[in-house]
Amino acid sequence: MLTRSEVAKLAALARIELSDAELDEMAGQLDIILGAVAAVSAVATQDIPPTSHAVPLTNVMRDDVVNWQPRAAAMLAGAPDVEDDRFRVPHILEEEQ
């Protein structure tokens, strides 16, 4: 059972502002979804190896070679705020009371 306050905690962890209405709706829906997926853990027991990719590959690596063009302007072009060729962002710490 996923409570409303647990959903609020998850939303905070995921940095998503949710309205009260969204919280209410989502708690109910997530609960239904979680109920529907619960069977998986019952069937998939201890001694089965996990699969992450269909065709298992290993050791895919590149040589240590510099391959780059200076494109600072293009990289900064999509930024919401720029100052002195740096990404400008709000202050990090919440203000002290």
Binding site: D64, V66, W68, A72, M75, D85, R86
Partner: peptide, 27 residues
């Protein structure tokens, strides 16, 4: 002290212009 970054070909040199040693991958 590799020449290029962990996941992309951008240089690791110290002291470039800000955001000059970046590409879609490391950004």
């Amino acid at each position: 002290s590799t020449k290029s970054k962990m996941w992309c070909g951008c240089p690791t040199d110290f002291g470039g212009e800000p955001n000059s040693h970046v590409c879609p991958v490391c950004l």
